[in-house]
Amino acid sequence: MGVVIRTADEGDRELVTRLLDEAFQDDPVSVWVFPDAAHRRARHPGLMGMFTEVVLAEGRIDVTEDGTACALWLSVPADAGHAGHADDEDDDPVRLREAVDPDNERVELIGRLTAGIHPAGRAHEYLWMIGVAPGRQGEGLGTALVRSVLDRCDREGLPAYLEASNADSRRLYERLGFDVTGRPLDLPDGPRMWPMWREPQPGRGA
């Protein structure tokens, strides 16, 4: 049986935040942002909640019908800045830091660094995050969520973009047609992130 996917709404805010928190607690980038485990457990849910709020307002969140996986997408227009947003939103990383963890410079820095490598000049779909409940990983739920949007990209001739935060996810995205684009982002004293781009594949999404 296929994976049933629906579009999340405001009623799913807590569900999505919890999924992202559980899925990314031990992710290399989250550990870099919040090196202390106890501090991460306290502050990480707030960061995931802010991400959820942004994408509910500006993009689209897909959720599996059983509530065990979600994917956060933004549609980036061709005239957007490197961050995928208008230039007047350059203060977003500052506001994020102030809301989540005011004394933690890395909350702001991760936003600025990923914005700096985000491709500009072509409209595309941006996979911001994808989270799968720890007990359900490896079942193909994340792949199903991503493929549903990539099929639409193929039909509409749209490229897609993401940043892979670990080597395992990079390999998954490569199987889905993404290629590393530009130079990897090496976080200061931290892990590597891979910017990945996928050109539309005519005929796949028909």
Rank of each mutant, 00 (worst) to 15 (best):
G121H: 06
L109E: 15
G140M: 00
H124V: 05
P119Q: 05
T114I: 08
G111K: 10
V132G: 10
R97D: 15
D103C: 10
P102V: 05
L113V: 03
D101Q: 02
V100P: 03
G131R: 04
R122G: 00
I110V: 15
V132L: 12
G135Y: 08
V132R: 10
R136T: 15
I117D: 10
T114V: 10
G121S: 07
H118K: 00
E108P: 02
P134K: 01
L109S: 13
I110F: 09
R136N: 15
L127E: 04
R136G: 14
L113D: 01
D103P: 09
A133T: 07
G142A: 01
G116Y: 01
M129W: 15
G135R: 10
A99N: 01
T114P: 00
V100W: 01
I110L: 14
T114G: 05
L109R: 14
I130W: 04
I110E: 10
A120F: 09
R112Y: 12
I117R: 15
P119R: 02
L109V: 12
A120R: 11
W128T: 14
A99C: 01
G131T: 09
T114H: 03
W128E: 13
A120W: 10
M129H: 11
E125W: 05
G142N: 00
D103F: 14
D103Q: 14
P134T: 04
A99M: 03
E139L: 15
G138V: 15
D103N: 12
A123G: 06
I130H: 04
I110S: 13
A99T: 01
R136D: 15
L127K: 04
L113T: 02
D103K: 10
P102K: 03
A99L: 04
E108W: 02
P134I: 02
G138A: 11
G140Y: 03
R112T: 13
I110K: 08
I130P: 01
P119K: 01
R106C: 08
P102F: 00
G121L: 06
V100A: 00
E108V: 01
M129D: 07
G135I: 05
G138Q: 13
Y126L: 12
V100E: 00
R122T: 09
V107T: 07
A120Q: 12
P134Y: 00
G140L: 02
P134M: 03
N104G: 11
N104A: 15
A123D: 03
D101V: 03
E105N: 07
